[in-house]
Simulated scan of single mutants.
Amino acid sequence: MSGTSDIADGGPKHVAVIMDGNGRWAQARGRPRLFGHHAGAKRVREIVESCPNLGVKYLTIFAFSTENWKRTQVEVAGLMSLFRRYITKEARALCDEGVRVRFIGDRVQLDRKLVSLMDELEGMTAHNDRVHLTIALNYGSRDEVSRATKRLAEEVASGNLDPADVTEETLTKFLDTRVLPDPDLVIRTSGEARISNFLLWQSAYAEYEFIDTLWPDFSSEIFANLVGSYGKRERRFGAVPA
Rank of each mutant, 00 (worst) to 15 (best):
D165Q: 13
K150Q: 10
L152D: 03
L175V: 12
P163E: 07
L152F: 02
A148P: 06
N160K: 14
E154K: 14
T149Y: 01
E168M: 11
S158E: 11
T177R: 01
E168V: 15
T170H: 06
T170K: 04
E154L: 10
D162S: 09
E154I: 04
G159K: 09
D162Y: 02
E169P: 01
V166F: 03
V156L: 06
G159H: 08
K173E: 12
R151V: 00
E155H: 07
A157H: 01
T170C: 05
D162N: 09
L152G: 07
A164E: 13
A157N: 09
A164H: 14
A148Q: 06
V179W: 07
F174E: 03
R147G: 06
T167G: 07
L175F: 08
G159A: 08
K150D: 01
A164Q: 13
K150A: 11
K150L: 11
R151I: 07
N160A: 05
L161F: 09
V166R: 03
T149F: 05
L171C: 08
A164M: 12
A148Y: 03
R178A: 13
T167K: 15
L171P: 04
V166P: 02
V179Q: 12
T172N: 12
V179N: 13
T177S: 08
P163W: 00
A157I: 03
T177H: 02
E168K: 15
A164G: 15
N160T: 00
A153F: 05
E169V: 15
E168G: 14
L152E: 04
L175Q: 05
E155R: 11
A157T: 01
L152W: 02
T149G: 03
L152Q: 03
R178H: 14
A153P: 01
A148N: 06
K150V: 07
E169D: 15
T172M: 09
T170G: 08
A157S: 11
L171M: 12
R151N: 14
E154C: 10
A148G: 13
E169L: 12
T167P: 09
S158T: 00
P163G: 06
T177F: 04
R147H: 13
V179M: 12
D165K: 14
V179D: 14
E169Q: 15
S158D: 13
E155N: 02
E155V: 06
E154P: 03
A153G: 00
A148H: 03
F174N: 06
R147L: 08
V179Y: 10
V156S: 05
T172I: 10
V156G: 07
S158R: 01
T172E: 13
T170S: 12
A157F: 00
V156A: 09
E155Q: 10
T149V: 11
V166M: 04
L161Y: 10
R178K: 15
V166E: 03
S158C: 11
V156I: 15
T177C: 02
A164Y: 10
E169W: 06
K173I: 05
G159M: 11
A148T: 09
D176R: 08
T172R: 15
E168Y: 11
T172H: 12
L161N: 02
T177Y: 02
D176I: 05
E154Q: 14
N160Y: 00
T149S: 13
N160D: 01
L175Y: 07
K150C: 06
P163T: 07
D165P: 01
K173H: 15
L171R: 06
A164P: 10
